[in-house]
Amino acid sequence: MRNIFRIMMIGLFGIGTASGQITKVDQEVYGMDCAPCAYGLERGLKKMDGLQEVRVSLNDGKAYMGLAAENGLKLRSIQEEVKKNGFSAKKAEVTLIGNATKEDGQWYIETANERFSVSQDTPTALLQKLTVGTASISGTVQDEEDDNLSGQWSIVLTKIE
């Protein structure tokens, strides 16, 4: 229901622009082995504007984040915070609302400040549900090399609202 409301709001005020935002991130973290590591990462993430809730799991090797209703947070910023703590940011499961576009047969979903290229690994059934305009989607963002944080991501869609 909340997502429907968000889509309506974006539809009213944001169609045709690159507005939109990430609303949830489960970030995989490699190399984090101890409580102070998790504490440091959790504290660093909590300092970021736009993060509403943060939970770090050593056993899962993940940081679970819920983002505020209005936020300008980039996935890149989250991964940079992971790196700043001495770990490697790997795959991320994200939920976001963005503007879907199609260029030369390639689908893209854009938030206010990042662009997600829809991977060909996305199931065909899901790709067929994708339409130009506002989209609320979930998916897995592929691992980028730590030193190659370009701000453009490849995403395998797992759900379209």
Partner: peptide, 13 residues
């Protein structure tokens, strides 16, 4: 100076 680091798994490096 940590001149080499390879985090290759959950909790592993």
């Amino acid at each position: 100076y940590r001149f080499f680091s390879n985090a290759f798994g959950v909790g592993k490096r």
